[in-house]
Design a protein around this nucleic acid. Structure first.
Lengths: 197, 197, 197, 197
DNA sequence: ATTTAATCGAGACGGTACGTCATGTCTTCGG
DNA sequence: CCGAAGACATGACGTACCGTCTCGATTAAAT
């Protein structure tokens, strides 16, 4: 994701990218993202924390958003499995539960929250974030389609609405924090989404 | 909302607040908010557009967010009625529809979007926004409770989840814009929320 | 100096000028001038310290400078006598000594210093100050002329230069404070000015 | 004068100071200082005139005063020679004349006047200015001491007073402008200072 | 071994917006 | 009409980040 050699024709000359530096930047970004929950994270601060020049950051990531997203996806472990048990209800419940619980991770939560906040200002990051979440969304849609093909969902079921119910409720609660995102909530949400099926 | 006399004991001395200025600021804020969809709105720009000193803005609003929220609530017409037809389904459908369509207003939509973006960075505004929306949320909850008392909803229905489905889907679609927020969507969402009732 | 009634034709209508207020303003000005040696004195601060509205200050004095000068001349006692002993040397020595010592007064010195500093920025005050000092300067010139007429000074003596030596040295030492302004200094300066007479 | 490398141990890392920018700032400062005789010169205006970011000014000069003094001393040519002809009278006359005439330079005069005015408000600048003038003062004192050693001045002559007569009259006339600072004035002042020698 | 080129930390640079401060004018109400 | 309180337009202040740029030093492949 971050930075290809500028000239792909020639094999490669000159000093190679320092992987330790790369990691240091991602680590620093993730740490600052987690520490300053809500407060803006500056590139200067990340570079300073990583013991790195600012230019080095800009060399490998086109925008602050790209860096933050990279930090969250590469270094933080948001591992949501995609089950295929043969039951839509079981599959959906598992995904929702994993999403809910995975987002609550001690360092993941504030970082993810900050990332969402940054995306509000940075159109580039917003697009990246959407591209990233679209993959997962499509995966979950696949899960629903399989259920529909098995006859568990009505042929005319509004899958997009179901997806939006899932992610809408998730982000709404995650960002506002006014209601829990625990196992019970996952069960209730699953039931609500699959109510008449 | 903005600025009560500091000392309620004394009748009030000194020059009074200039209402024309007040309105000019709110109008300018709303206009700039609507015009620059997504782009940040600066206090300098608002003051300049309103023909007002920056200090005058800071005198009456503690933060940029507070001003923007004020601009949106006082000057923009987000008039969502709270019907009481005797049918939960009809009531909820009306509210959802009004919310969906009201948010699409030509100048309201970009302003509301900008406001949400600003709230992502400004904790003060986030709180104000939450306080503001909590009122409407409580009103809608009242609507649901009435239906529950009439027996239209199960006694154990998770009203909070229902509310979050409504507002979660609304904000999710409003901010991402990947799915419509039209009358049909309102109907489908209503059905989904009240699925098993 | 400070403020005539706006309409001199009509005997006088309305509330009369409050002398206590007048004094309070001058006192506050003098006090602040003395306290904040070097630091700028603001009209707001004076008004606040006098328990007075800002407009009341502006009503009676055309500029901050005028007020400060008023404060120094009316309230502070810079009483330099104008002796006429029949000897230029004695007269000049007395004036210089009185000027040197008078300017060292505990509250006078910082106030005068601040006044001079203010005059550097306020052309209006500079003019007032010059008009004020011109009176004294002319008085001292008269003293020298009398000596010249008595034959104590050469007919072609450069009186202006003598005056500038006096005031130049005074202000230079007063503002920089690198050399004393005591009785001995007065004697030496007198001797230097009258050296070849 | 402005800004040595912060850490003398390390050879120096990072981009070097842009001398063109440095000069542009000093030139702009001097020009504005000369143009706006008396009126305050703002950092914003200097930065704008130099085509430079405000921060760049603040990076290299701790205060507006330091910048202005720098501008006057580095860019403007206040070249007062220090003669050593073997005659105190000739030496002193030359210095006074050069000082008088040098200060009258078309762009120097308003700049120097503005500088003095700024110093009245800015203690930091006042100190800098004093440090700067102390060098010249000491040089002139050296001139007098040489004359004293040659027996041209009495052993007990008050050199400090002589210096103060020089600079006191100079600044007094320069700032007030009520009397000329021409060659004739220089001669008269020289005579007055050395009257009884 | 030498050349060539890309990396690195450091930090200067032109901008833009911030929130605060003082100025001098104005408006309001109570005396 | 006077006086206290304080709102108002203006404009400078010094700070914080932004993203770009320029340094000298380092490192590795190509010659």
């Amino acid at each position: 994701m971050a930075g290809a050699p500028p000239n792909p024709e020639r094999p490669h000359t000159g000093r190679r990218r320092n992987e330790a530096t790369h990691h240091a930047i991602l680590d620093a970004a993730l740490r600052l993202l987690a520490e300053s929950d809500g407060e803006a994270v500056t590139i200067d601060a990340i570079a300073k924390a990583a013991g790195v020049g600012k230019q080095t950051v800009y060399r490998w990531w086109p925008s602050k958003g790209a860096l933050l997203l990279d930090a969250l996806t590469e270094r933080s472990a948001i591992q949501v499995p995609l089950p295929d048990t043969g039951s839509v209800r079981a599959d959906l419940q598992a995904v929702i539960e994993a999403t809910f619980l995975g987002a609550q991770g001690k360092s993941t939560a504030p970082a993810l929250r900050s990332l969402a906040r940054e995306a509000a200002h940075d159109p580039h990051l917003a697009e990246l974030l959407q591209t990233f979440t679209a993959q997962r969304r499509n995966a979950v849609r696949g899960l629903l389609i399989r259920g529909q093909q098995r006859g568990e969902l009505a042929p005319g079921a509004d899958l997009d609405l179901m997806l939006d119910q899932f992610y809408g409720v998730f982000w709404y609660r995650f960002l506002l924090g006014h209601q829990p995102l625990d196992q019970d909530a996952a069960t209730r949400l699953t039931n609500a989404i699959l109510a008449d099926h």
